[in-house]
Amino acid sequence: MQTATIIIKGMTCMGCVNSVKTVLNNLSGIIQAEVTLEPAQASIQYDSNNINVDQIKAAIVDVGFEVMN
């Protein structure tokens, strides 16, 4: 199990937080995803055998937000 913290730009409300969390939780390999508005970030535990950080970041971008790291 790996852990990543991804800073997200563009989230303005809890609807945004829920959108990102839903996308992350639907990805294969995500064990747990916690998304917060302040600070605007996602803390993710994932199985590196099934998914990598670049794929996670791409999913966040696909839903309409920008990743900062």
Rank of each mutant, 00 (worst) to 15 (best):
Q45I: 09
V17M: 04
L27M: 15
S19W: 00
M68N: 12
C16I: 02
G10L: 01
T3K: 15
K9V: 03
G10T: 06
A40W: 00
K9N: 14
V67A: 07
G15Y: 00
P39W: 00
V17C: 06
I31S: 14
A40R: 05
Q32L: 10
I7G: 05
I56G: 08
I56W: 02
I51A: 09
D62H: 12
Q41W: 00
E34I: 14
N18H: 09
A59G: 07
Q55L: 04
N49M: 01
E38Q: 13
K21C: 03
Y46P: 10
D47M: 03
Q32E: 14
V53K: 12
Q55A: 14
K57I: 07
K21V: 00
G15I: 00
S48V: 08
G64W: 01
A59N: 06
T3A: 07
G15P: 03
K21A: 08
T22F: 01
S28I: 08
V23R: 14
V53T: 13
I60G: 08
I56H: 04
K21S: 13
V17Y: 04
Q55F: 03
A33E: 00
T36Q: 08
A59C: 03
Y46L: 04
G29M: 04
Q2H: 11
D62W: 01
I56T: 10
L37T: 10
